Every structure is written in structure tokens, then in C-alpha cells.
Amino acid sequence: STVKVRLGHLEVTLHNVSEEDVRELRELWKNGADEEDLRRWLEEWKK
């Protein structure tokens, strides 16, 4: 499914993403990950 995730002022649209992935991303964000960390996660996730 396609999910729009809003993290601060960063809005990311993920395609074919699982609930688990979204949860993981939100956890990262809650734990103080900055945009760099999130971008890195997204790069990994896209592979």
C-alpha cells in the first residue's frame, strides 16, 4: 500500500510499504532521528 508519512516538516510517500516499515520509521523519528538518519533509512529501504 502507499502511505504518506509526516515527520516534522518532512513528508514522505512510501509505495509498497508494510505497516511494520512505517512503524519502524516512526520509531526512529520518535527516538530523535534527524532527517539524515531518515534519508539513510529510506535509501536502505528502497534497495
Rank of each mutant, 00 (worst) to 15 (best):
S1H: 15
S1Q: 15
S1I: 15
S1D: 06
S1M: 15
T2G: 04
T2S: 10
V3Q: 04
V3K: 03
V3R: 04
V3D: 01
K4W: 00
K4D: 03
V5W: 00
V5L: 14
V5A: 02
V5H: 01
R6A: 08
R6M: 13
L7E: 01
L7D: 01
L7Y: 05
L7C: 06
L7I: 15
G8V: 03
G8N: 05
H9G: 14
H9L: 11
H9M: 12
H9S: 14
H9E: 14
L10W: 15
L10E: 13
L10A: 08
E11F: 05
E11N: 11
E11K: 05
E11I: 10
V12G: 01
V12F: 11
V12P: 00
T13R: 04
T13N: 04
L14E: 00
L14Y: 01
H15F: 07
N16K: 05
N16Y: 06
N16S: 06
V17L: 12
V17F: 05
V17A: 08
S18F: 05
S18R: 08
S18E: 05
E19C: 07
E19K: 08
E19M: 10
E19H: 08
E19T: 09
E20P: 08
E20L: 08
D21F: 14
D21I: 09
D21W: 15
V22T: 04
V22R: 07
V22L: 15
V22F: 14
V22S: 05
R23T: 08
R23I: 10
R23E: 11
E24R: 14
E24T: 14
E24W: 09
E24S: 14
L25N: 00
L25G: 00
R26M: 15
R26T: 14
R26H: 15
R26S: 13
E27N: 07
L28N: 02
L28Q: 04
L28P: 00
L28K: 05
L28H: 04
W29Q: 15
W29H: 15
W29A: 15
W29C: 11
W29T: 15
W29S: 14
W29L: 15
K30P: 05
K30D: 15
K30G: 12
K30F: 13
K30R: 13
N31D: 13
G32Y: 05
G32H: 06
G32I: 04
G32W: 02
G32Q: 06
A33D: 03
A33E: 05
A33Y: 07
A33W: 08
A33K: 03
A33C: 06
A33M: 09
D34Y: 07
D34F: 07
E35G: 05
E35Q: 09
E36W: 04
E36S: 12
E36A: 12
D37H: 11
R39A: 10
R39M: 14
R39C: 04
R39W: 12
R40T: 08
R40S: 09
R40L: 11
R40N: 12
R40Q: 12
W41Q: 01
W41S: 01
W41L: 03
L42C: 03
L42V: 13
L42K: 00
E43Y: 04
E43A: 06
E44I: 07
W45E: 02
W45M: 09
W45D: 02
W45F: 12
K46D: 10
K47T: 09
K47I: 06
K47D: 07
